[in-house]
Design a protein around this nucleic acid. Structure first.
Lengths: 342, 342
DNA sequence: ATGAAAGCGCTAACAA
DNA sequence: TTGTTAGCGCTTTCAT
């Protein structure tokens, strides 16, 4: 491929002049500019971002690390990130950790090698700081999404899980439910812990005694977790009258299990979900949920990150978390136990 | 950040020796190797991939350009691409064109600047070759996915749309349907054209006269296309007895429109879909579809691309398309008009 | 087994 | 407005 030197020769100018044309510097006469552009065109010249980055210390690449891009929650975040990134001339490198800390470390190492300008990370384990410290230590701008890590000076953009779970549980209680099963992700993920917190708080306020056998911690926030734990809950001697799916994948598993057992919603069992199950909601406005704006999470995280990049990560005060309020959407998947249906 | 020179000084060796350690060269004594590794560790050294790539002409980055990562079809492809890429030490840069050729061009330009080692592209317009020629001209390995461009020597990995549509239409015909509405994407996308081809062939074989008012070309393969065109179809004087959703987003729109009209599936109207609507299928095994293995498309495309990269895009014969056969899955969304339900 | 010199393609800083 | 010099961080080539 043609280099800046080739272009300079063909246009009969120095490489510096070509460089100025590439970077839209003033201080180039219209005539030279046109000659240079003609030469670039003729040669099919494309500037080399590696050489550029080596000098300027800017790559205009962002790293995005999530557990699984296949999860619509993260897909939508990714879209938000990408949209704002490209508007600002940045590309994103996508990484899937599958909730595996070792994979996460490997990705971070690769991103650091590639000298990305910043990283947006949804940590695989909120109790471990080693991955993140690698980033902070090198002063690479970093923003966390969805899952936070305590006691570290990193910005985090997320929805208020405790609030959302509290509201949804309170709603079920208002319908007369006292035995509410809840299925969330693993304990190492902050959202799982916080959703359980919100659930417990609602029960406590209603003076409903806590039954720990109704709380199920999954392995991975997966459909399988939702499926198997729903079967377990519904086979109890004293099964719940309502089930709370801790994220949209879990909820899909919950719905499948209920269907396979031949039970009807809401007649035989009530269901609520943390987050929309989009196709089902669009098709058949049915599921009562608390809904997060994941696109906004991606956009806001990127906006914060770009700000840090522009400020060279220096002139900002201590990091400030951004908490979005999820929205309760009541539809038709819950039955009132107080007589009459809702 | 520490450079190779810093490491060399600290370890008391030349930069060349450090370079050899980084690249696992033999010809380094165990003792020196350990001293160098210690120095790297102490300094928190991370090799600079920009400098490396500038010399080696390899970045270990792949570009992935799709219309919208939010479409589960492409999400799954992206996951397949990323999984195989990372296994081979490659990262991927993700790009969303929104079916816009101008955006596509801009992304290609950015990827070329970044000197990606290869590109996987789902073209926004199958009738235009300019974007692709920019890539081929520079001898950057390229593999197309899902949508092909004729008359160009580029490999394409895709599902057989004509076959899938033919089978699904034939199935509806076997149930006695004669008026079958079909909603696909825009004409500039090869899959839309081919799905219509398959549909027409099935009708022709059954000697059912073609009614062009039953064929709807959407703007974008979107839910909105599915929704509005379904309303249009069902408000005809002589409406179809079955509707064929041309991709999963369109099908979601179809289902929503049918629901809003208060019609029942399959009692009042039969529905089939090109591709699964995943959550609905898992939750409620209901929709009759032809299903593509999009994860495989991503994996295979990446495998072909990596091969081209390794062979330096030179020693391969003329490009060979890879056509996957989609699978018909009959469930419960169609009614037989021949008496009795299926 | 190790090192010195040259240079990948570009820009910062200065000079003219 | 344009050009010169130096060098970003690394590898290639050739020497020792």
């Amino acid at each position: 491929m043609a280099t800046i030197k080739d272009v300079a020769e063909r246009a009969g100018v120095s490489v510096m002049t070509v460089s100025r044309v590439i970077n839209n510097s003033r201080y180039v006469s219209q005539a030279t500019k046109e000659r240079v552009e003609k030469a670039m065109e003729d040669l099919g010249y494309v500037p080399n971002a590696l050489a550029h980055g080596l000098i300027t210390k800017r790559t205009h690449v962002l790293g995005l690390i999530v557990s699984d891009i296949t999860n619509p929650f993260f897909t939508t975040i990714a879209r938000g990130v990408e949209d704002l990134a490209i508007k600002n001339g940045f590309n994103i490198i996508l990484c899937n950790t599958d909730e595996d800390v070792e994979k996460e470390k490997k990705y971070i190492e690769l991103l650091l090698r590639k000298r990305v300008d910043g990283i947006i990370l949804s940590p695989a384990d909120c109790s471990r700081r080693d991955s993140i410290e690698q980033i902070i230590k090198r002063n690479i701008p970093l923003v966390l999404i969805d899952r936070c890590i305590r006691g570290l000076d990193v910005e985090c953009v997320y929805s208020d899980s405790a609030f959302g779970a509290y509201e949804l549980t309170k709603y079920l209680i208002s319908l007369g439910h006292k035995r509410i099963g809840i299925i969330v992700g693993p304990k190492r993920i902050s959202t799982a812990v916080e959703r359980i917190e919100g659930y417990k708080r609602a029960l406590k306020e209603a003076n409903i005694p806590l039954d720990n056998s109704l709380i199920k911690w999954g392995e991975k926030y997966s459909r399988e977790d939702g499926y198997s734990n729903t079967l377990a809950l519904l086979k109890m001697d004293n099964p719940p009258t309502a089930i709370f799916g801790g994220n949209r994948l879990i909820t899909v598993g919950v719905l499948r299990a209920i269907r396979e057992l031949g039970m009807r919603i809401p007649e035989d069992i009530s269901v609520v979900s943390f987050d929309e199950v989009e196709d089902i909601s669009v098709t058949n406005s049915f599921l009562t949920v608390v809904s997060q704006n994941s696109y906004a999470i991606g956009m806001i995280a990127t906006e914060r990150l770009l700000k840090r990049i522009k400020e060279k990560n220096r002139f900002l005060g201590p990091s400030e978390n951004i908490v979005l309020q999820p929205e309760v959407i009541i539809r038709k998947s819950c039955r009132s136990l107080l007589g009459g249906e809702i």
